[in-house]
Design a protein around this nucleic acid. Sequence first.
RNA 1: GGAGUUAUAGCUCAGUUGGUUAGAGCGCUUCAUUCACAUUGAAGAGGUCACUGGUUCGAGUCCAGUUAACUCCACCA
Length: 711
Amino acid sequence: MDKSDNQNVEQKLYEFWDKEDLFAANPDSDKKPYSLLMPPPNVNGELHLGHAMEQSIMDALARFKRMQGFDVLLLPGVDHAGILFEGTFNKILEKEGLSKYKLGREEWLKRAWQYKEEVYNSFHKTWTVMGISADWSREVFTLDPKVQKAVLAEFKAFWDQDLLYKGAYIVQWCPKCGTAIEDLEMEYQDREEKLYFVKYQIEGTDEYVTVATARPETIYADTGIATYPNHPKFSKFVGKNAVNPLNGNKLPIFEDERVEKDFGTGALKITPGHDPLDYEIGKDHNLSILHAVDKAGKMTDLTEDLSGLKIGEAREKAAGKLETAEAIEKVEDYTHSVPVCERCKTTVEPLISEEWFVKMKPLAEKALKHIKEVNFLPKNYEKILSDWYKEIHDWSISRSLWWGHQIPVWYCQECNPNHEVGKDKDMVIFLDKPKEPCKTCKGSTWVQDEQVLDTWFSSGLWPMATLGWPEETSELKKYYPWDFETSAPEIKYLWISRMIMLGLWFKDEIPFKNQFFHGMLRDLQGRKFSKSLGNGISPYDLVNQWGVDATRMALYTYSVPGRDSKVSRQIMDERCKNFRNFSTKLKNIHRFIYELKPEDAAEVSDYSHDDDTEIIQHLNGLIDAVTKNIENYQLHLATEELYDFIWHKLADSYIEWSKKRRSDAQPCLEYVFETCLKLLHPFMPFLTEELYQKLPEHQKSIILAPWPETK
RNA sequence: GGAGUUAUAGCUCAGUUGGUUAGAGCGCUUCAUUCACAUUGAAGAGGUCACUGGUUCGAGUCCAGUUAACUCCACCA
């Protein structure tokens, strides 16, 4: 049989399972529920090896629990991945000479949904190929009306509970993506830059205060100078004004303990419009806010002849001007890390922008109280998340994007043209455009808030929204909280922590009982797989070359909770090849037992021969070990036990012994083999089903076979 | 700056609550070959379990420290 035949067989088996509805959960059944929530992959690019591992883990558990007689719900879905999708999609448009602004919101969204369908189809292909036994009738996309309803309920509840506010704050702004991003969406790059020591003359004197800055172009937006308390050189200037060397503005000099004594000169120029710390200090000292850089990353009119320049250029020119004005004391080489946008690697600009926020403290406190109810694997994530909850800060939830849940707030354009927000202001939280006129001015021009919600604002509801919350559905009653959830550790704060907080807040119950953090697959240098590095390994290639079952088995060897693994294509090939050989071994065992069955084979046996006793004793040990290891989510141990037993104990030893008493051993051979197929099914679904259906007596599908018990 | 993880055979990794000669796969060496299976079988070489100290009758496993690598968080005037 060549590869394509194999794939044919697998495809047919999958279609058979699907047609027979063997993956469907049934809320009305009397069986005990076991629910697994698939982490929705981002609708962006293709599924990689990490996804394949993650989904193989969930699928093994689902298949295991089904055979144990549970009503299993393995619920699949896809995340719209706001900023990530929009970035990717805009890049595609760029190649066609288009842009979101050329297309306009409506047309852009139309095309975005088309592209989403393409990605969606490729996801489905991968899931089918991998044999994922999810209940497809319940699949959810995070922009579905179902989720939209949940998001609306969430937003409205936060508003009613006074946890939501909107205002101008300093945010981390990505000029390329054109949106505010969260701290969690930034990363840092080391850059070699210059540190300029700039002299600010004290008004009416020849004296000056020196300040170190890496961003001289923002000097235009300075509105004060702060020194640390009791500065030996500068404290005598406190209360006086310094003169801005670039535009002559008067800058009050004051003390603030947030200025560090040993950094720079001990004095800090305060630029509230372009630095988070300065913003805080400025606010406390009532400084005004000026803008030298706009949201496109260009210099504003405030910077006079630098206006319109990009930041890099402006920096050099500003430095030149300072030089000319003899305001530079010295320049040092300076290596520091610069925040960049995680998605597009553009330098992030702290800017003032109008954004929505959620007050997180009460949610975090509740999460902290109940986090012990979640069983984390590995255990120490309970502490890691607890520490994060203890230092929670407000959640900036608005994004200036088009791809996402548009903020469900409507403003009366006539009496509230600036879209102000407050209990007294006219705004409406409704999914649809309000039909009735504005209460205040009777106007009827309603405008919806232009921004969309942070992706995690909807993903955080995933455990509930997928089951129909805020409706009290029978699904929600039966399957919440989820028995099992898994994810990569890198989204523990972005996603896992939010699901816990939101689940507790809205449902008063933790969202999942077991949270499994699988390790990250990395390249041999320990780097993450990424498109830009081009070091990814396609699960497709492995499946094509070695078969699904072999690829899945290889992945289980890396499914140790919390352990990262270094792999290369070569290493994966070796591993897969090994399990491909194992598949062949299994087929040959089947051939030996059934196709070459002697005509005088015994029908029954009392298993009293020493060889039989021994193999059955080992088999009992295997059943216990595999069951226990799956129940403890130690899939790497379960598969290792199976491999060792089948290859070495069954094939190399027992079958060899049995040749001396072939006919007599037949019943025992059959019993042991059939048991192995069942034990192996969660991991190698296709081959086990194929061989199972060739057994003389069998159920419609191995999926319906009961999980083996010891004899 | 804070936190976490890792260090075991040439390579990639296991090693459950501390308990006899430390395991797997690949790779390597030698041998077998009309045997269900060469996508095979048998035998073998290869490790002072990073280092130092401690607890213990007993430590790869627990504790402290050192070194190295990685990850996350915070910050960087």
